[in-house]
């Protein structure tokens, strides 16, 4: 095991997959000479040259579509969004082109492409730069959605996403890039899509979450331990495909669940998960499931308001207390 940052783990995954397959290239704003806005692609230009590490103009719609066309023709593009906040400009090409091409051509054009970049809020970046975007992508059949929360998951899942033959929205956490963790040394370390990971084990309540919210959930779980409450923290890791077996398993064990996500509540990922739990494990529930989300408002700038808007460990603890009727 090597200790490295989330950023370094992503960088290793890119490097290894590019070495492995000459059809893989990285395109996006500032990915080459600047080493990436968040330095994820540091050193890759030197190693792979400007044909494979490509600085694009600020043209999200254009270079996303270019990537989709390149994938149609047989390449395996990795398209970097400086953040998914800017990817709204490109969502036509992700949903209308990438996610549907295989189906509407009756399987003639597979779409092996990864769209990656940070999603969610960082610190005081205000409304247009602070939003969790998973739901927009998971809504569309044909698109897979991956949200790693640790360096090991970032590496293993990015490698799987690049090797996958479907379009994958690979959503990183801006505030996670400096987060350190252990990553297996194996240069063929791949985490299959669709496998959740129990990040903390307890029998009293299930906190189910994804992406960087696992850290909020773990913080809550640690505080709850002091009160003698032991929580399962289930990290979905990928939202589509979804490890429903793992969800049902933890719910059957604890009979109480909280869904924590960074995005807004309306038609959020949690809404989907809660709906499925009541369909598939209703008899195992001892309390209604509660969701913890961002406040249902655009992200404010003022520091105090931003703190109020973001889901926190305290919000999670409150929700856990509710489902435990404490």
């Amino acid at each position: 095991m090597a200790v490295m940052t989330y950023r370094e783990a992503l960088n290793e995954a890119l490097r290894e997959e590019m070495e492995r397959d000459p059809d893989v290239f990285l395109m996006g704003e500032e990915v080459a000479e600047y080493d990436g806005a968040y330095k994820v692609s540091k050193g890759l230009l030197e190693e792979f040259g400007e044909q494979r590490i490509v600085d694009s103009p600020i043209s999200e719609l254009g270079f996303t579509g270019l990537g989709v066309g390149a994938a149609m023709a047989g390449l395996r593009p990795v398209i970097e969004f400086m953040t998914f906040n800017f990817a709204f400009l490109a969502i036509d090409q992700v949903i209308n082109s990438a996610a549907k091409m295989y189906y509407m051509s009756e399987g003639q054009f597979p779409m092996p492409i990864v769209f990656r970049g940070p999603t969610g809020a960082a610190l005081q970046l205000s409304a247009q730069h602070s939003q969790a975007c998973e739901t927009y992508y998971s809504h569309a059949p044909g698109c897979k959605v991956v949200t790693p929360g640790t360096p090991a998951d970032a590496k293993g899942l990015l490698k799987a996403a690049i090797r996958d033959n479907d379009p994958v929205a690979f959503m990183e956490g801006e505030s996670l890039y400096n987060f350190k963790g252990e990553v297996p040394d194996d240069d063929d370390f791949v985490i299959p899509l669709g496998v959740a990971d129990l990040k903390h084990e307890g029998g009293d309540v299930s906190i189910i979450t994804h992406g960087k919210m696992i850290h909020v959930a773990l913080q809550a779980a640690q505080k709850l331990e002091k009160d003698g409450i032991h929580a399962d923290v289930l990290d979905l890791r990928t939202i589509r495909p979804l490890d429903m077996d793992a969800i049902v398993e933890t719910v059957k064990k604890t009979n109480r669940a909280v869904y924590l996500e960074e995005g807004w509540p309306y038609a959020g990922t949690g809404a989907q998960i809660v709906s499925m739990i009541q369909e598939e494990a209703f008899d195992h529930l001892d309390a209604p499931i509660i969701r913890v989300t961002q406040a249902d408002v655009p992200m404010p700038y003022a520091k105090n308001l931003e703190i109020l808007a973001k889901p926190s460990a305290n919000h999670v603890i409150e929700a856990v207390n509710k489902v435990l009727y404490r």
Partner: peptide
Amino acid sequence: FDADCRFMGGHGIVGGQVPLATGIAWKIKY
């Protein structure tokens, strides 16, 4: 669509195919 004939569609959003064809040209050069 016909992959064998290299007829690449058939796209329904006005102008949506223009970046796609540019990506095919990218692959040719690549």
